[in-house]
Amino acid sequence: MERALTRTEIVIPKEVAIYKEDILKNLESLEEIDNVKIKLEDNKVVIYGEPESVKRVEAFLLDQISVSKKGETFQSHRVFVFDKKIVRILTPGQKRYVEEIEKNHIVLAKGPAGTGKSFLAIAVGLNMLKNNLVQKMILTRPVVEAGEKLGFLPGDIQQKVDPYIRPLYDFLEELLGFEKLTKYVEKNIIEVAPLAYMRGRTFKYSFILLDEAQNTTPMQMKMFLTRFGEGSKMVVTGDITQTDLDIGKTSGLNHAWEVLKGIKGIGFVELTEKDVVRHDIVKEIIKAYERWETK
């Protein structure tokens, strides 16, 4: 049975025609998408191929045109192409973040919610996996009893910790789709587990992400960082304004930020509200809390 194919045409508006070459340059990075062909015909882009792939490219192109219509300074944004989504690096801070991950062995990143700390790290890791630069991905978070005692929650230990690590699965599924993610998990190519499960292990040729690191203690952070092995890359992310540790306890992320400065191969990135890529109201919420905290 032949696969159904579709053809879509998108006209590049006159008001953004000066950006046409830049837009098309960005589209060149999408040529690795399977089962889709992209070409320029006069003032329109023609996309032809399998419906799902065409839909992703169409959404990306319309987003590019929208940015140009708003009168924003157009830049060629680097993109990562996955089975279910095209990820575009949107801000200078995000660009530096990705570059630091790629050039260092270990990167520590701070920043408020919505800056893409976790999502971009996962995108970089999946891209490295796709290009055979690593053999495995390990994603982890500390399990912190934020107002609830694990012993009083229903279910077995896996059911109890699942809510803490579920957002990491959601990110992966958004990029890979459920079927491919399930296959990777079953083959142990991708592992998602609580931080306590990292003890006593050494990770070689792996991409390892420690998310929500503001909720680690200095000892937990040391334990995690010393899991680093040959051919691996580590990323540690967190928002120091949203710690669930008991009052007075030192965050492992803040502690490592001070202790590890000056070590070659370890990068430090601090994202700000300027890098927030969620709804604009998220930026305003962050600013409001910052003003309140400085009173």
Rank of each mutant, 00 (worst) to 15 (best):
Lys39Thr: 14
Ile266Phe: 00
Glu21Ser: 13
Leu175Arg: 04
Ile33Ser: 02
Phe171Tyr: 13
Asn26Gln: 15
Trp292Thr: 13
Ile65Cys: 02
Lys261Glu: 11
Lys249Pro: 07
Leu225Lys: 03
Leu40Asp: 12
Gly116Trp: 05
Glu186Ala: 11
Phe82Cys: 02
Glu173Gly: 09
Gln75Thr: 14
Gln94Cys: 04
Leu24Gly: 07
Gln158Cys: 11
Ile285Asp: 00
Asn188Thr: 11
Thr8Phe: 04
Ile10Tyr: 04
Val57Glu: 05
Pro167Lys: 05
Arg291Pro: 03
Asp239Gly: 05
Tyr184Pro: 13
Lys274His: 03
Lys180Asn: 13
Pro92Asn: 02
Val79Ile: 15
Tyr289Met: 05
Lys20Pro: 07
Ala196Ser: 08
Val11Asn: 07
Leu195Ile: 06
Phe74Val: 09
Lys20Gln: 15
Asn131Thr: 08
Ile157Gln: 11
Ala123Asn: 08
Ala196Lys: 01
Gly267Arg: 07
Glu273His: 02
Trp292Gly: 11
Asn131Cys: 08
Val235Ser: 01
Ile138Val: 15
Gly229Ala: 08
Lys95Met: 10
Gly71His: 04
Ser66His: 07
Glu99Met: 08
Ala196His: 00
Lys160Val: 05
Ala4Leu: 15
Thr216Asp: 06
Gly155Phe: 04
Arg199Trp: 04
Glu148Pro: 07
Leu133Cys: 06
Lys183Tyr: 09
Lys84Ala: 10
Ala59Cys: 11
Lys180Trp: 12
Val259Cys: 05
Leu225His: 05
Ala146Pro: 08
Gly114Ala: 09
Ala17Ile: 11
Val45Gly: 01
Asp42Tyr: 03
Lys117Thr: 06
Pro13Ala: 01
Met198Arg: 00
Pro154Leu: 11
Ile190Ser: 07
Arg201Phe: 05
Ser118Gly: 10
Arg166Ser: 13
Thr6Asp: 08
Phe60Asn: 04
Ala109Met: 09
Val259Ile: 14
Glu32Met: 14
Thr294Trp: 12
Tyr48Ala: 13
Val143Cys: 06
Gly200Met: 10
Ile157Lys: 10
Trp292Ser: 14
Phe74Asp: 02
Gly49Pro: 08
Leu139Gly: 03
Pro218Gln: 05
Val134Asn: 06
Thr241Tyr: 03
